[in-house]
């Protein structure tokens, strides 16, 4: 009877685990879908902004006065985006590995480190490089407001000449199914960044500016940078939940397989137990007749 009980217990444990992984799968997939919608929405105003910037840049022939177009020294800030939690396959690991090799391109005395997500902060603390700024909880709630705060802070440091470059390391979700850790430059911005934007159809006489094209450009660049950071946050969020969804789906399926096997084992054990009992009864009965 012990074998039967063991199997039953084993089955119960697998069922419990499956409940947890299944719930995590469902939550992750809902969060991922929400993030994808946010991303699509942002993309619309972001691309329009880029088109407008492209138009202005093409219409002026002198270098712009916008401070964010000014390339200067070597001091580089890295904003590393990873998750707050594990249980999402290789998501954190891959992003952090890329982050590590990326920050090494700048000598330690010239770089500063900004992290989003506990996993990123913990990782660098373990490695002995304490992050200069940690944004906690932002990654669980990638709102426009959070993006605005982070962007404003980075832009302030840049325009106060405390930083020369800002790179962001985050994970993109390509085609809805391929996780790609990427390191991209946020600041300074260059003319080339906008040359692939869709051109706006302008009338023959060109556009008027109110109050001036330089002020228009400043405003658009501000919107562009916020949109950029918001997009990175939302993409990282989508990627994290995609990774978790995949990991939890696999775990749930494994549990299903295990349950099938256990059910078969249980059936066999039960059958064996019945057969044994029958044999014993029959043997006993035969013995009775003979005796």
């Amino acid at each position: 009877m012990g074998a039967l009980q063991d199997i039953r217990h084993h089955r119960k444990v697998v069922e419990d685990t499956r409940k947890i992984t299944r719930a995590m799968y469902l939550i992750a997939s809902a969060k991922m879908k929400r993030a994808m919608r946010m991303h699509d929405q942002n993309e619309r105003s972001f691309e329009r902004t880029r088109s407008n910037i492209r138009f202005i840049l093409e219409s002026i022939h002198t270098p712009t006065s916008n401070p964010f177009f000014r390339p200067h020294g070597e001091r580089t800030a890295y904003l590393v985006i990873a998750g707050d939690k594990g249980l999402c396959g290789g998501y954190n690991h891959e992003a952090l590995r890329l982050a590590e090799s990326t920050i090494e391109q700048t000598p330690p005395d010239k770089r500063s480190l900004f992290t989003i997500g506990h996993m990123a902060a913990d990782h660098f603390i373990r490695k002995g490089q304490h992050p200069d700024v940690q944004y906690s909880h932002v990654i669980q709630d990638p709102t426009l407001r959070n993006a605005r705060e982070i962007t404003t802070e980075l832009c302030y440091l840049f325009s106060e000449d405390a930083l020369d470059n800002v790179y962001v390391v985050y994970t993109q979700l390509r085609n809805g199914s391929i996780l790609t850790p990427t390191a991209r430059r946020l600041l300074p911005v260059f003319h080339e960044d906008f040359m692939d934007a869709a051109p706006i159809e302008t009338p023959v006489h060109g556009l008027m500016y109110h109050p001036s094209r330089f002020e228009a450009l400043d405003m658009m660049v501000k919107h562009y940078l916020i949109g950029w950071v918001y997009s990175a946050l939302v993409q990282a969020f989508a990627a994290e939940h995609f990774a978790r969804m995949t990991a939890m789906y696999a775990a749930t399926r494994n549990a299903d397989e295990m349950l099938t096997r256990l059910n078969i084992q249980w059936g066999h054990a039960r059958q064996a137990a019945i057969t044994q009992e029958l044999t014993e009864i029959v043997a006993g009965a035969e013995g009775g007749f003979r005796g």
Binding site: G2, A3, L4, D6, H10, V13, V14, D16, T17, I20
Partner: peptide, 22 residues
């Protein structure tokens, strides 16, 4: 919870392999 479940799993597996019949 997950960790506990895993431990239970591992423990039961060990137990059932050590004493196949009850």
């Amino acid at each position: 919870m997950l960790a506990r479940a895993m431990v239970r799993l591992r423990v039961t597996r060990c137990a059932s392999s050590h004493e196949p019949q009850g």
